[in-house]
Design a protein around this nucleic acid. Structure first.
Length: 190
DNA sequence: CAAGAGATCATCT
DNA sequence: GATGATCTCTTGA
């Protein structure tokens, strides 16, 4: 980490989910596992905001699975979908307001054994299931804090994304969510 | 190309 | 017992 790098703390995630989702674009996510460190640039996110948002799992109320979204910002929410793929989310908003950002895509995947030299890996990371597979992220991180101590963390390395390079759109795969399905709460770098 | 099916399991009803 | 914030492969026009 150089001097310009800023580790994202719960302070960053305590704000409005849509703002956090938008600002996460261009940030760098790190995952340390088995003596390797993966890193990649976040390029696509979606916001799931509040118990009223029918697309959000938390609209069903507080259950074993969703309780982490009601907890402190900066926590990691991971769940298994279709029995196969892990979805990576980061909890936002103050405690007791259920919300989270889904990380949908990253790019420039790299791996390092010493945190100094990074080597590029050319595997697809342009989907929420693909990126967790490539970064070797699984359910073990669920309910943990997003910090280097845990092994998963996000850094602002000063990558600027011009406003005209940021696209918004409808969220994917939530056709059941009534009027909420058309909310432009998906953000991506074009 | 677009559309459809199958994979496979934690969680909730 | 049903289902899903996905992905890949197969089918058919």
């Amino acid at each position: 980490m150089n001097q310009k790098s800023i580790l994202l703390t719960p302070e960053f995630f305590i704000r409005d989910t849509r703002l956090v989702a938008r600002e996460l674009l261009g940030k760098v996510i790190y995952h340390r596992i088995n003596k390797k460190v993966y890193k990649a640039i976040i390029t696509e996110t979606e916001a799931y905001h509040g118990a009223g948002d029918l697309a959000c799992h938390c609209s069903k109320g507080k259950t074993k699975r969703t309780s982490v979204m009601f907890d402190h910002p900066g926590l990691i929410y991971i769940y298994l979908i279709y029995g196969i793929y892990y979805m990576l989310n980061i909890v936002t908003m103050p405690k007791n307001f259920p919300a989270a950002v889904l990380i949908r895509a990253v790019k420039n995947l790299q791996v390092s054994f010493d945190m100094k030299k990074f080597e590029k890996i050319n595997h697809p990371t342009d989907g929420p299931g693909k990126l967790t597979k490539q970064l070797q992220i699984d359910g073990r991180l669920n309910n943990k804090l997003l910090t280097p101590n845990t092994g998963l963390w996000v850094v602002d390395e000063g990558i600027e994304i011009p406003a005209d390079k940021i696209q918004t759109g409808k969220r994917i795969g939530i056709d059941y969510a009534g009027k909420w399905k058309d909310k432009p709460w998906r953000f991506y770098y074009k």
